[in-house]
Write a protein that binds this DNA or RNA. Structure first.
Lengths: 345, 345
DNA sequence: AGTTAGCACTCCGGCAAGGAGAGTGCTAAA
DNA sequence: TTTAGCACTCTCCTTGCCGGAGTGCTAACT
């Protein structure tokens, strides 16, 4: 079916999609004829268009409007016709600089890159950070945080920082805390959070007697704190960009839906998690993305890694009518930039 | 001038404001006459309205529409005519519960409360946390964070956590880090961040010789990390609520402006900082708020404290036409709730 | 002197009619 | 197979018109 289209037909489809991306208006046969150097008359184009419509790639808002690409049309365009624009030197530089400025903890870094990505693409940008349970710990520390409260801080390789508050713990002395921090760090050496948790339970069970009361309590406490999994994080930047898109600016209802989704992190998480596992860039067009609340938006996302393991993904969320030829390379570049940045951390 | 209005006039103003708050439509003399139990005829009301317009409290969108309160009108209403609604038992409970769930670090707590506040008020809610430089430290820790990177974690009383990455530091051994953490903690005891910084510099200058090379380097490094002031934080919840307001839903331009402002934290900061210092609740109506980008929005905010010192403020941002009688008590309650929560931290 | 009924006037919003423009599908000819 | 021509359809914009809501003013009433 799809692949059974001749060259001329696909060229027409390509022009229609690109014109539609540029103008957000239904495109007519006349326009396409001109765009193709008048090698074909409008009438011929119309025939081809009729074929494309039958094949499901185009649709007509009403009898005598031009054609608009359907989801399938965009899909085909992305998969087979897309001519990627290469990034401008300046854009790459900007991204690099942004990454350089994100010289705080890791979340600072991804946030900066995400922000710039959203500016360059003029779309809303999203970064998700998967729950860092699988990542290798760099260090652990127990800190006093007020009366009967202790803070367990964990730092992963790459600079992800997490903290959990442990409440209702009768105060340990500073010395005790330090002693126990040191001990925890030993246990944590080269392990993931998950492994550390297991190790702690192990120690606890194995030789309870070996520890004095303080140590035992500290172990129990840490185990407890590490039990509730941290949920992973979502950063959204450039929300206002979606107002730049006429399809949202005009339709308050759609706008509301997507803004609400932005506030519900789990929804965004679901949108991007497919990209997280896969290595290649993922483009979900409209209805394809499995989130039923948002059937009419597209997501372009790519996972980024730290060494061999995926730690999250970065991407753009916007209308189906996106400038994919520009946006796909941008996202790819941003993701690979993050991967590179994490390499030497 | 203003106070020179007789009782009847102010009652009319009150009804106009309240009706306008409820309907978002210009209100006419007929409506007000009915609302006041027909004790006065529409014609009389019209005369009063003309007076109020002359005094600057009302305006007419066009010759034969009803009247709309001006900024000054709202101002007068808020200052003199407002009948506060008391909170429903259920709302107070909900807020309490939200505060209870925020049982992580302090930012978790304020975020929860802010989120619920935004739900109850159906407006966007904002919390700012002032730069915690003035707050008293609870503990400090230096942690390894990858190659040549060290993380300085500071925990304030009340549970505010900050971390700064120190880059390009040749690795210290775990032992050295621990030793120095302990030393730093001693210096920090009962001090604010600012004082700690001063103290460190002091130590450094005073008796350089006393410290071995490692200690010296560690001191320098900490001083450096503590030099760039942390900017303070802004959390915004319930952005989508502003779409519920017809004044924004209809006017894409205003919408865009306010969404952009939400992305520019410094703007939001400026909006709320007045509330931070003052103890009473602050209501800025429209043009009054000093941020020139947003002349047509209102801010209702109140500072919250930790012990004697203000640590930030919580509030709502929305159209000038807000239900102040409901929203003001809500914000007050939320702020006092935060203050209470921080009391026993 | 303050209040009110009455009335003319203004302005908005909705609706229908009409015309221009854009684009289509179909047919017949090249 | 392509294309010119043409009738047709649909949207969108403009225009004109009407009803409704609300005002301001004046004159009468209390």
């Amino acid at each position: 079916m799809a692949s059974g289209m001749d060259d001329r037909t696909t060229r027409v489809l390509r022009h229609i999609v690109e014109d539609y991306i540029a103008t957000a208006e239904p495109v007519g046969s006349r326009t396409i004829s001109k765009k193709m150097g008048q090698s074909l008359s409008p009438a011929t184009i119309r025939n081809i268009m009729a074929d494309l419509e039958e094949a499901g790639f185009l649709a007509q808002p009403h009898t005598s409007a031009g054609r608009v690409p359907t989801g399938a049309g965009f899909r085909y365009y992305i998969d087979h016709l897309l001519a990627r624009q290469s990034l401008a030197r300046g854009e790459m530089d900007q991204l690099h600089r942004a990454a350089g400025e994100g010289n705080g903890p890791a979340d600072e870094l991804v946030r900066q890159v995400s922000r710039l990505l959203s500016n360059l693409a003029r779309q809303a940008s999203v970064v998700v950070v998967s729950s860092p349970e699988q990542q290798i710990l760099s260090s652990v520390s127990l800190m006093r945080a007020g009366v009967e409260r202790i803070l367990l801080v964990t730092v992963m390789r790459g600079g992800w920082v997490q903290h959990r508050l442990i409440e209702g713990e009768p105060d340990l002395t500073g010395d005790e805390l330090e002693k126990f921090s040191a001990y925890l760090n030993e246990l944590a050496e080269g392990r993931t959070l998950l492994q550390l948790r297991a190790r702690i339970l192990d120690e606890l069970g194995k030789e309870k007697a070996r520890y004095d009361r303080v140590m035992g309590r500290a172990l129990t406490m840490s185990a407890r704190a590490l039990t509730d999994a941290a949920p992973g994080e979502v950063f959204i930047e450039g929300r206002a960009n979606i107002l730049e898109q006429p399809e949202f600016a005009e339709d308050v209802h759609r706008l509301k839906r997507i803004l609400r989704a932005f506030e519900e992190k789990s929804v965004i998480f679901r949108l991007l998690d497919r990209a997280m596992v896969s290595r290649a860039i993922q483009v979900s067009v409209g209805i394809e993305n499995t989130v039923e609340e948002l059937p009419d938006i597209s997501v372009v996302a790519s996972g980024y890694r730290q060494g061999a393991s995926s730690v999250g993904s970065i991407g753009l969320i916007g209308p189906v009518r996106m400038d994919y030829s520009r946006v796909i390379p941008l996202v790819e570049y941003a993701a690979s930039l993050l991967t590179t940045m994490f390499e030497d951390r």
